[in-house]
Design a protein around this nucleic acid. Sequence first.
DNA 1: CTGTTAGCGCCTTCAA
DNA 2: TTGAAGGCGCTAACAG
Lengths: 375, 375
Amino acid sequence: MVTIRDVARRAGVAPSTVSYVFNGSRSISEETRRRVQEAVDALGYHPRASARTLRSSRTHVLALALPRAAGLQDSVDGRFAIDVSDAANGLGYDLLLTTSQDKAEGLRRVALSGLADAAVLMAVDMEDARIDVVRELAFPAALIGRPADEDALPWTDLDWEEAAALAVRELAAAGHRDMVYLAPGEREVEGRRSYALRGIAGARRGARTTGAAVTVVHSVADPARLADRLRTVLGNPDADAGDGGGAGGAAGAGRGDGGGAAPTALIVQHPSAHHHILPSVTATGLRVPEDLAVVVIGTLPGDPASRALPRVELPVETLSFEVTWLAVAAAARQREGGAPSVTEPGARLLAESVGHLLIPPVLLPGTAPLAPPRH
Amino acid sequence: MVTIRDVARRAGVAPSTVSYVFNGSRSISEETRRRVQEAVDALGYHPRASARTLRSSRTHVLALALPRAAGLQDSVDGRFAIDVSDAANGLGYDLLLTTSQDKAEGLRRVALSGLADAAVLMAVDMEDARIDVVRELAFPAALIGRPADEDALPWTDLDWEEAAALAVRELAAAGHRDMVYLAPGEREVEGRRSYALRGIAGARRGARTTGAAVTVVHSVADPARLADRLRTVLGNPDADAGDGGGAGGAAGAGRGDGGGAAPTALIVQHPSAHHHILPSVTATGLRVPEDLAVVVIGTLPGDPASRALPRVELPVETLSFEVTWLAVAAAARQREGGAPSVTEPGARLLAESVGHLLIPPVLLPGTAPLAPPRH
DNA sequence: CTGTTAGCGCCTTCAA
DNA sequence: TTGAAGGCGCTAACAG
């Protein structure tokens, strides 16, 4: 184990000088710097993180709090984890994963034991228990997701509400009067997942704005059951009444002049349905886009399977970078007692002062056009 | 900041006593224990990880080295990250993500700065640079993936080779004489990704064993190009010669009595193709399973989109647990100077002594049967 | 521009 | 069954 003292001895300087060479907080003569560097290379010295942290009470580690809802987790989570890790590295931080089980236990433990300087909270609910935890502990944190209390903590998110409203508006502009909004599953709504509620609210708003009829249906993981629900709500003429069953999660919504006509458009917000939505629709006997226009919301960028459809992508990389920046800024603010540092122009400055950053949705064209309805 | 001394003072004991209460390595009177606990609760004391680590040189942190190949990463990676995190938590460890960019830089830094006790390496290549790094640094590590040198480090993996061979055998037993093996993309093969090479080797072995003709085709991310390649190799009668183009990644292989007949079965090993393989096949005009039997290898458990097909699932949870265990065991071995600890029976003991654990593939039935060929 | 020094909070040997 | 004390490796005052 080679320490700073070994280096100092070999370079013929004091340990503190070696430290300053590393931390660069005071001027060092070129000669001294060179000799220290030489000793470092010769001995293969590398500072111990624990000693540094104990002394400076800075870890240069960010905690990433994953939700870890029992059962299947979306591939979205992993994608965020990787991109946040990259962003953190770029800012000189490492990333510690905390799959907080119950009551944000992991997050609390990480904060209390000083394992991280700040936390990034993923997949937040409208009222998220983890928010209370970090506030109670005065632990710097930033969220991916827009909580009910928008001023409690810095956050960033895709504007899911506007994304849904935008999809409805565009479809209405193309002539569609009757649409179906395939929202995340019931459980996500009951769990008050932010993106789920915002998306549905946007769909309703779009319906009001355009006068189109928008029926909100909740998605299900199982493709067969999903096809059932779609069959029911899309009112396919030659439905062969497969498994029968109830009307599923159809929840009436949207007022407009569309009345009870058969829907001509489908908006899909459920992440895990993105991949098999097309087969599920095809299973109902409808052709896309001739019989039914399909728009997808929240797809992963670069996902080949969803490039065919018109869609609003989830800007994972941007969100990851911004939330990381917000978390690091929060840590800095806490260290310096609240003085906001003005280091970057533009959106970032805004994000820091306002405390959040809402990313406007962009509707990308798919291979298949936004076909107008047939009647 | 409440320290161990504050607790000691309030409980009327020495700091060391408090420490022993936490670490339980010597007997404490019930009375003392109670008073310490009371003080801990009252003051909200929590030990500092950095101080502990500095003193004990144990971090209780595992590093997870993700490959981070430029461009799109599979959702598989994220899934592993989460499951390894859970497994680590179960063994009393936290998980630090290192998205090692070039030359395993992140991993090296984490090891050198003592941020972790051991590493888990994901998505290993046959000859992986990270293996050299951890060996050079004598840093305990375990791999998810089976490297060329099987004895260099402990590892665990699905037996991809046997999985592919199994699929060929089962299809051959069902009467198929001509098959297509859709392997991972050319880049993954050139990068000598372990699972890619093993899978292809297994397909070849299956061909030899059964006498069936197996053509190996490399997958592509883009669904349209994939459909093209499939059209070419599956020799669809009513192919409308879409984009023309070359024969794509078709690489002749497999000897047998199948000769040049049209393939009746398709085996898919490319993870990112799993989701849209069915549409891509349908796009060629072939019906599944009437015209073409499809078997998928390496699907994620619980993925609703792939439940329909016969498949070999990737046992993410098992692999994650085992590799975590191997990594922790390696750390313990290093601490204790090589003495193998005998704490668990069965497979785990075996895994520890042999140093690796190869999981045998299981072919699960899909909704669609393994239809026999028509001719 | 550089050296000396005093801990950061904890664990663990040694002593009682 | 418990205390006292030293030091893990590093940083940040203070001196010069």
